[in-house]
Design a protein around this nucleic acid. Structure first.
Length: 569
DNA sequence: GCCGTTTTCGGCCCGACTGTTTTCAGTCG
């Protein structure tokens, strides 16, 4: 699939044009095209072959021609032209905070800066500070930017971001000057990774709040502090994370929260819509002329624009504004709709707890059932179960089910799909199980699509776990055609998983939405290896909500009775 | 470069903060 390749090319063209001082709107157009490429689930070559490129929003005649040219020849004239005269490492420097295209172009033209080494040199010898409209302080800020750039700068997993944010929020709530504190930005939208943590604060005395905010013990550096807006770094080294706050009066809470939650693309669309209607939207409210007509609540802000309120997870400019206009937003799945967890491991394989301990923890979450899905025999890396030990596990589950009132433990297994495309567990064993998961744990590059489809065709298999195999922070995933996998799942009426482990979230939101649209059922499971891991469910639900999923799309919202009926089909 | 139940041309979100300005440019979100 060349989707990401093309996205990278368009982003680089945008960077290059920005560096060269090209018209801003042309640059925005290339960035939009890049984003469109990244969000496609279908292979761009398939779309091109169908002649449907220009049906993608953000792709017009010009960019469509460039895509066709690239797919046909492996080259793109515009790309070559845009990058002509630009040394390979130069545009990378645009990732340094406080160093934008204008300053970089100036440093390049006047001082011959072409890479990080050059940049450091002209900072050290003072020549950068001597350029037009430059000075000591500006250079100092660029130096700060370089430090942050070299330290970390990677997006962090949502799990880690939530922990940092929750601690910070607890600290902020202790201040008597703070009225409301609300994590917003990508965290509130439950994005799978987080760049900066954004926190909205309302209160009266901004200066006092700013002071208190920057005195948080974990702050390692203050990046900038005004009266209503502050940025700090929390932690050091690879752990360092940027936290931004915005302070506004209580009566503007809704407008402020809407603005600070984003996404940027959503807000741009919203503000454009307001403009068409003769209104203006900002963090200070919705205005018609000078008159403020909304701002106290988010509901109010959306309402005056003719829209119903929408959950933060939808706010990505992926059709939610259009749907809200027609009052056709999905009624999203809630965490409280989840009645059980259908993938977890006990100490029989590589889990840390007993089956009883897992059941107790699940009961405490209000669940009606769980499936114990220990690894199968070929999974030696995970202490996979021999048939004898599997039978022992069944006996224990039977005993527990007799003991536990109003709670059910399903006999499950996570069976390995072998490189031969066969499952490592015999059908006659699978036939005796309540819930059969098949998954790839070996041969990531060997006919994965075909092997998964073969597993889906097996009448005893209910679900494919983590269908792409990606690990967000460290692994790309199997060499698999997910479009085909979706087709197979639909054909055999099987379930696909949203694995809720925060480093998997697999299927991701885009494929989850595609699956839903096709009519495929999903299950959201934590893949817990200990009782505490069951709490990861909220990340899986977040991904599901970002994929527009409703209760009816997810099988572990069914009651035990309904689930048994569903699984027996 | 994209896009159109107000337009095939003329629009394209809005504001904070910083520094180097003598009224504003650059950067960021």
């Amino acid at each position: 699939m060349k989707n990401q390749e093309l996205a990278d090319i368009f982003n680089q063209i945008a960077d290059a044009l920005e560096f060269k001082g090209e018209m801003p709107f042309r640059i925005i157009a290339y960035r939009r095209a890049a984003r469109a490429m990244e969000e496609l689930t279908e292979d761009i070559e398939t779309i091109t072959a169908k002649g449907a490129l220009m049906e993608i929003p953000g792709i017009g005649e010009g960019i469509a021609k460039k895509i066709e040219e690239y797919l046909k020849t492996g080259k793109m004239k515009k790309y070559r032209e845009a990058l002509s005269g630009i040394k390979p490492e130069l545009l990378e420097l645009l990732n340094i905070q406080n160093l934008g295209p204008k300053t970089l172009a100036l440093a390049n033209k006047e001082l011959g800066v072409n890479n990080l080494k050059d940049l450091k040199k002209v900072i050290a010898n003072g020549s950068l500070a001597n350029l037009f409209r430059m000075g000591e302080k500006k250079v100092e800020n660029i130096k700060k930017g370089i430090e942050i750039y070299e330290q970390a700068g990677e997006r962090i997993p949502i799990d880690q971001a939530l922990k940092i944010a929750e601690e910070y929020v607890a600290y902020l709530k202790k201040s008597p000057d703070v009225a409301q504190v609300e994590p917003s930005g990508s965290l509130r939208r439950m994005k799978e990774t987080i760049g900066d943590i954004d926190i909205l604060i309302t209160g009266k005395d901004g200066a006092k709040i700013v002071d208190y905010f920057t005195k948080y013990p974990k702050v390692s550096r203050v990046l900038g502090a005004g009266e209503t807006k502050v940025s700090v770094m929390v932690g050091t080294g690879a752990e360092a994370t940027q936290v931004d706050i915005r302070i506004l009066p209580v009566k503007l809470f809704g407008a402020a929260l809407q603005y600070f939650t984003g996404s940027k693309a959503h807000n741009v669309k919203l503000r454009g819509l307001a403009k068409d209607k003769g209104m203006k939207v900002s963090e200070y409210g919705v205005f018609r002329g000078k008159k403020m007509i909304a701002g106290k609540t988010e509901e109010e802000v959306y309402k005056v624009l003719g829209l119903t309120w929408m959950p933060p997870e939808l706010r990505e400019d992926r059709g939610e504004i259009e749907a809200a206009m027609k009052n056709q937003l999905p009624k999203l799945l809630e965490l409280s709709d989840i009645k059980g967890d259908l993938q977890m491991h006990s100490h029989y394989s590589d889990g840390s707890a007993t089956i009883q301990e897992m059941a107790k923890a699940a009961q405490a979450l209000g669940y009606e059932y769980i499936a114990i899905t220990d690894h199968s025999q070929s999974a030696q890396y995970a202490h996979g179960l021999s048939i004898d030990r599997l039978k022992k596990e069944w006996d224990e589950i039977d005993q527990l089910n007799d003991k536990l009132p109003k709670f059910k433990i399903l006999k499950g297994i996570e069976a390995d799909i072998l490189t031969s495309a066969k499952l490592d567990t015999a059908d006659k064993i699978l036939a005796k199980m309540d819930f059969v998961i098949a998954s790839i744990h070996q041969g990531f590059k060997k006919n994965v699509t075909q092997r998964i489809c073969a597993a889906l065709a097996n009448p005893y298999v209910h679900m494919i776990a983590h269908p792409s195999g990606r690990l967000i922070s460290r692994r790309e995933g199997y060499d698999v055609d997910l479009e085909k996998v979706l087709e197979c799942a639909l054909k055999y009426k099987k379930v696909l998983e949203i694995n809720a482990y925060y480093d998997r979230l697999d299927l991701n939101e885009l494929y989850a939405r595609k699956a839903k649209d096709m009519g495929i059922k999903l299950a959201i499971n934590t893949d817990a290896h200990g009782p505490k891991d069951l709490e990861w469910m909220r990340y899986g639900v977040g991904t599901a909500r970002r994929g527009w999923l409703e209760k009816k799309d997810v099988i572990n919202t069914l009651s035990y009775k309904e689930l048994k009926k569903f699984l027996s089909r």
